[in-house]
Write a protein that binds this DNA or RNA. Structure first.
Length: 325
DNA sequence: CTTCAAGGCCAT
DNA sequence: ATGGCCTTGAAG
């Protein structure tokens, strides 16, 4: 067997890909230390070369690891090993309605994933025009799926109908705040899961991505004509914040689906304007969170921290995006 | 029991 | 920072 990253002799699977121990160790360090790499040409040769030590480009090596099938989620999966155990004991500690709610959220996220129009280019960066088009598509889809989903209807029932605006107003109604939050949530989750944290790259849910290394991001900002630089400063800040803070937290917390669902529910219900909040939703949320705290207080702490980061990130993102919407 | 793969350690 | 070597835990 040969290593699918550096073509050296492989010794078996590491984090989901056949690789040598060295590339496995490199990948593990990259993820667990949350390194950030950058490279201007992005197609360096990664072949193993015994004559030089540590010579190859880290950005490209990591990219090769990911594209060869290594999964950041698998780092720290085994030794802590609590994931599966915690999920079962989490379910044991919950009442039936909480379990049903979590299942609904899991189905909800899967429905969204199934409905989503994927851009085929996983490895090609986007430009602003593509970004705007994909945002419109994404928000239309989120709106449609969300309003067909019972738990979403429940938490929004006090305001959803009168506020169903059209595109021009989309950033100004409470529903779009929820959709923005969904979008930011999925973007940060994916960025963590796909190793975008190391690549300084924000993955959007439909697999477009935005590079944040200085040169490439400047190109992104300048690729359309009428670019007075000012409004785009906030785009850079917002995107950087999402990658550097929220995606990182997602990656290190490494939640499984039920805990992700609890986090999402917490974020969504908190995004509903305070005088429109649904009483049952509040009760449900508190119940989910106390159950989580009882079973896994570390994960509970993470949900608290990440939730507040997501709220900040969604605010920054909304501001940045509305300037180009 | 054995095997596989993850994390820790540490000389380089 | 790297990668070889060792220990550890889970799965078969």
């Amino acid at each position: 067997m040969i290593c699918s990253i550096c073509s050296d002799k492989a010794e078996g699977y590491h984090f989901g890909a056949i690789s040598c121990a060295a590339c496995g160790a490199f990948f593990r360090r990259s993820v667990s230390d949350q390194k950030v790499y950058s490279c201007s040409n992005r197609q360096c040769n990664i072949a193993h070369d015994p004559t030089k030590r540590g010579g190859s480009c880290r950005f490209c090596r990591f990219l090769k690891c990911v594209s060869s099938g290594m999964m950041p989620q698998d780092v720290k999966a085994k030794r802590t090993a609590s994931t599966q155990q915690n999920v079962t004991s989490l379910y044991r500690n919950m009442n039936q309605s909480s379990i049903l709610l979590i299942d609904q959220i899991i189905v909800f996220r899967r429905n969204i994933a199934a409905e989503r129009q994927m851009f085929d280019s996983i490895s090609r960066s986007t430009n602003r025009t593509n970004l705007i088009i994909s945002l419109h598509q994404e928000f239309e889809m989120l709106r449609r799926v969300a309003l067909g989903c019972p738990f979403f209807i429940q938490i929004t029932e006090h305001f959803s109908i009168p506020y169903l605006g059209t595109d021009s107003k989309i950033m100004n109604d409470p529903l779009s705040d929820l959709l923005t939050l969904l979008f930011v949530f999925e973007a940060c989750y994916l960025t963590g899961v796909k190793g975008g944290v190391q690549l300084d790259r924000l993955f959007l849910p439909n697999m477009l991505h935005v590079d944040l290394s200085e040169v490439l991001f400047t190109e992104f900002l300048e690729c359309d004509v009428h670019a007075s630089m000012d409004p785009y400063r906030s785009i850079l800040n917002a995107f950087s914040y999402l990658v550097q803070m929220v995606s990182r937290s997602f990656q290190s917390a490494n939640f499984d689906e039920p805990i992700l669902s609890i986090l999402l529910y917490k974020c969504l219900t908190e995004t509903v304007p305070i005088n429109y909040r649904h009483r049952f939703a509040e009760v449900n949320r508190d119940s989910l969170l106390t159950d989580l705290n009882r079973v896994d207080s570390t994960a509970f702490q993470h949900t608290q921290n990440i939730a507040s980061q997501i709220h900040q990130g969604a605010r920054a993102y909304k501001e940045a995006i509305s300037s180009i919407w």
